[in-house]
Design a protein around this nucleic acid. Structure first.
Lengths: 160, 160
DNA sequence: GCTATATTGTTATACAACAAAACAATCGTG
DNA sequence: CACGATTGTTTTGTTGTATAACAATATAGC
């Protein structure tokens, strides 16, 4: 056998070389992992009737209240058209509210209600348990930090 | 000031502590990264009119031909009901085909057509360029290996 | 061998996520 | 003031995915 194997794991097995194995495809594994994590997230927040998108909206409003709808939506990569129903729901549940922005009669500034603030507190606690579960799977906090760093690189974030 | 800061980056700024920053949420960053990678993937394969799911099906059939529909679907996490239309499309495009499985008149064994084989060759080449783009973003092949490893841990794969 | 149960591929259907276009109200600028 | 841009909204369409039901076939138990 003249050393011709490129794949390294299927010499002479008739398996066509050059065709990527699923586990070697970054996009594929990324998707599977994201699905898994979201699955855990969704189950974790099932009782609170909170979906990932709603979580992110509440967290953003909590951290920087008063931002305009479009600003919040943009930061989360949500089209402002699709953001409307999302915000409607949060408002009807009494968790967040739209206030007339002073100075601009078109835009709404987003805030948490008092109940929303309490809700976000509980939400944050519940989230921590979810995140800790991921850390265990990853094998420790350093692994999580590394993962966040690598994902950040894909997203083009500055190398800190 | 007695050292009470837990967040470490917003002392005295009125920002509620305990509420996670978006960039610190594994699930969120994972989703954004996956979206980004898929975006690049989709643009890369726009000319070939190939979607991620179709790519994965063709790659799987190419690597292990003769598998039953349900087997392929299951490996990819696709419900067999949704797999039908997917496979229909690949068959109508002349890339893959269903053969009557010998021994079981219910099941179909999946194979590539000759044209499908050529298509997969080209597909693999094009994919490599996409993957290489990701490697550059990540900062090298080692970073990619690390990422695949970490994602594998999330998915519960054996530590090799 | 016959019957009950399970599996395979399929159809139909519903729902959620997401994108694109258009619109009224309002803003900002020349 | 007139014009173009922006904000929130409605409407609509597409895609991905989940569920239920079905006919054909296979398998296991008796």
């Amino acid at each position: 056998m003249a050393g011709k194997s490129e794949d390294g794991n299927n010499a002479g097995s008739g398996v066509p070389v050059g065709i990527p194995e699923m586990g070697e495809i970054v996009g594929y594994k990324l998707r599977r992992a994201q699905l898994f994590v979201f699955q855990d997230f969704i189950e974790t927040f099932e009782k609170m009737k909170l979906r990932p998108a709603e979580f992110s909206v509440l967290a953003l409003i909590a951290r920087t209240p008063g931002q305009k709808q479009t600003e919040i939506a943009e930061q989360l990569g949500i089209k402002r058209a699709n953001f409307v129903a999302l915000m409607d729901s949060l408002e009807q549940r009494g968790l967040a509210e739209r206030r007339k922005a002073e100075g601009d009669k078109r835009s709404h500034s987003l805030h948490l209600t008092p109940e929303g603030t309490r809700f976000v507190d509980k939400m944050s606690t519940v989230w921590r348990a979810h995140e800790e579960r991921l850390v265990e799977r990853l094998g420790g906090p350093e692994a999580r930090a590394t993962l966040l760093d690598l994902l950040g690189r894909l997203l083009g974030e500055k190398p800190a």
